[in-house]
């Protein structure tokens, strides 16, 4: 009998927890926002992932040059390509920022603007570090 009581209580708890999202006040920007490939969010995320990948690749390339795995000429060729790719991605991010701003009635999103500014700064540093 006690097993049925405990089992029943677990069932009630499960139902309550599962139904909870339908009754609570919804905050903005929930991570459960359905994905719509036609919006800019997916593209923006892709750009960010690619950009991070390029920064990491450049760091590894630097280490490889220091370890003697890549000569200076090859380093320069590859690093130049990475910088160009990073610049393209920053521009793409700026374009997405502009799209976000036009979709929103107010000004551009502060967080995203900071993000793009950070990317620009990082790109500038990369160019400064180039021999």
């Amino acid at each position: 009998m006690w097993a049925l009581v405990v089992g029943g209580a677990l069932a009630v708890v499960a139902v309550v927890v599962v139904l909870l999202p339908f009754f609570r006040q919804r905050r903005e920007a929930e991570p459960d926002e359905p994905f719509d490939p036609s919006t800019g969010s997916g593209r923006a995320e892709g750009v960010r992932v690619q950009r991070e990948g390029i920064y990491q690749a450049l760091e590894t390339l630097r280490l490889e040059r220091e370890l003697g795995q890549v000569d200076d000429a090859e380093y320069e060729r590859q690093a130049g390509e990475y910088r160009r790719m990073a610049a393209l991605l920053v521009r793409e991010q700026e374009r997405l920022l502009a799209e976000g701003a036009s979709e929103e009635d107010g000004g551009p999103n502060d967080q995203l603007e900071r993000e793009v500014a950070e990317a620009r700064e990082r790109l500038r540093r990369m160019e400064d570090e180039a021999p």
């Binding site: 991570p31 926002e33 969010s41 923006a44 976000g100 999103n109 993000e115």
Partner: peptide, 11 residues
């Protein structure tokens, strides 16, 4: 990440 969420919310 936060920026992406903000983009999603505005989109």
């Amino acid at each position: 990440m936060r920026a992406m969420r903000a983009v999603r919310a505005t989109g």
